[in-house]
Amino acid sequence: MLTKRLIACLDVQNGRTVKGTNFVNLRDAGDPVALAARYALEGIDELVLLDITATVEKRRTLIELVRNVAREVNIPFTVGGGIGAVADVEALLLSGADKVSLNSSVLREPGLIDELAQRFGSQAIVVAVDARQTNEAAASPADEAWEVFTHGGRRPAGREAIAWCREAAERGAGEILLTSMSHDGTRDGYALGLTSAVSAAVGVPVIASGGAGAAPHFRDVLQPGVADAALAASVFHFGDLSVAGLKNYLLAEGVTMRPVG
């Protein structure tokens, strides 16, 4: 049976991971290649490398990093963060990334999704959507209003979130990486209502992101009809949850998972 997926997200800047980690027995937790290999060994299903470098050197260091991760790691990974040019997408895929995630560039130019999907195949194109709830006092999930934001949730993109996800999938995105900026960092659980609504609106897999703090949060977001995959960063990096422990918990809770070997 097709399993639900657990995805660890590594934030990198100038070729180094930026969020701290306290992995024991890992000599250099700032080395994204070592960290990625460690997660793969522990049984994570996929990885996302999110590059937040904002220098002219970005392109070169990112391609080098992708090559090094692809050389070491035997599971799929996605690379994202400020990627827009077709030539950059091509270079990253040719360097060994399985998928490239796009965010602000496709909001500025939605036709880029069509172009990239035709050229590289939908399976390689992930559209990342950062959504924020604009009416926190909504009476029920059906009344929630979600808008797309850019620049770390500071700048409204002028798009309603569910409609934008649907458009991205129709244009050829092979997967939607949906982050709730309203839940990110809270550790109170994922945005279940928003994620279900997006999942029902698109025919492609949906990765939920933002809000993971404890094992039951993963169980809830990986129920049928909610998310196909759950992404987290700090709960894994800081060792609050081990991949194996979380997978065993989810299997016991009836979530289909690739067991840890």
Binding site: K4, S199, P205, A229
Partner: peptide
């Protein structure tokens, strides 16, 4: 796909 819960592409780990 028979329903909305089955997405295409078939993406991920399967036995």
């Amino acid at each position: 796909p028979p329903d909305a819960a089955h997405k295409v592409p078939h993406m991920g780990w399967n036995n």
